[in-house]
Amino acid sequence: MSLFNRFLAVLFTCVSVASFANEPVEIFWEDLVPEGHVTVDTRNSAASHEGAEQNWVQPNLDAPVVQKYNGKTVSLPGFVVPLEGDSEVITEFLLVPYFGACIHVPPPPPNQIVHVTIADGVPIESLYDAIVVTGVMSAESWSGDIAKTGYKIKGIGVAPFEL
């Protein structure tokens, strides 16, 4: 093998390893709950929208989180609860496992909500549609008016969720 061919082989290997290292880890909501911990499901909880104040309390505020994805680039499907943005793009939102969480029903536990920020923002065409967020995850808490989260993602991309 010539020196040039060896160089190309080494270069190809380095590029392949580097691109593989940046491939996002595909995760799902059950991956964010430590093994053996039971998650409270709030989807069937009744909520009244009378008055200005929400009438529910977020359950299990000290729900444990998984540290394994800290600093890793991940892809996670879910639904958007917008926090910051304008009519064109959103720059900050909560990613939740099912439609209506935090708005129409009580929020899920913090280990089932992710606070997402995307510097340049992304257009979200419909809040009814599931999306996939890709970005760097941290097991870091965030608190706002409507919920406390157990995770954050510094987003680098959003795409429609496809089965």
Rank of each mutant, 00 (worst) to 15 (best):
D129K: 14
V25Y: 10
L95Q: 04
E92H: 14
E88S: 15
V33K: 00
S126K: 13
V116H: 00
K68H: 10
S19L: 00
A63T: 01
Q58I: 03
V105W: 05
I131N: 03
P82Q: 02
G85P: 11
G121F: 05
E35D: 11
G36F: 09
G135Q: 07
N22R: 08
V25R: 11
G71W: 01
E162F: 10
A52C: 09
D31T: 10
D31M: 10
A130R: 15
D41C: 04
T134L: 01
P34L: 04
V57K: 10
F28E: 14
L32W: 04
S48T: 14
V133C: 05
L32Y: 02
C14L: 04
I103P: 06
S87V: 15
S19Y: 00
C102I: 12
E30I: 10
E140M: 14
F28D: 13
V66Y: 07
F20A: 02
V38W: 10
Q58G: 07
F20T: 00
I27Y: 04
G121Y: 02
P106N: 02
G71M: 06
K148V: 15
L127A: 07
A47V: 14
S48G: 14
G51S: 08
C102A: 12
A119T: 13
V158N: 00
L3W: 05
R43S: 15
L127D: 05
K152E: 08
L76S: 06
G155R: 03
C102V: 13
T134P: 15
I156V: 14
Y151H: 05
P107M: 06
P160N: 11
I90W: 05
L127G: 15
D120R: 03
A139V: 08
V158I: 13
N60L: 07
T73Q: 09
I27C: 06
N5F: 06
V122E: 10
G150T: 06
V81Q: 06
V122R: 04
K152V: 11
T117G: 02
E140D: 14
N5T: 05
F4Q: 08
T134R: 07
E88T: 15
A47H: 14
N22L: 07
T73H: 00
W56Y: 12
L95W: 02
D145E: 15
P123L: 11
F7R: 07
T91G: 00
M137F: 04
K72V: 02
I118W: 04
V81F: 15
V15A: 03
V158T: 09
P110G: 00
V33A: 11
T117F: 03
G71A: 01
V122T: 12
L95N: 01
V116R: 01
A46V: 12
V74T: 09
V136I: 15
I27E: 08
I90M: 08
K152W: 00
S75G: 12
G85W: 10
I90V: 15
C102G: 09
I153D: 00
Y98P: 02
V136W: 03
G71I: 10
P160W: 05
I118K: 03
V40N: 04
D31S: 13
P59W: 09
Q67G: 09
W29Q: 07
Y98E: 14
R6E: 07
L32M: 11
P107G: 09
L76I: 12
L8F: 06
T134F: 11
T39V: 13
V81D: 05
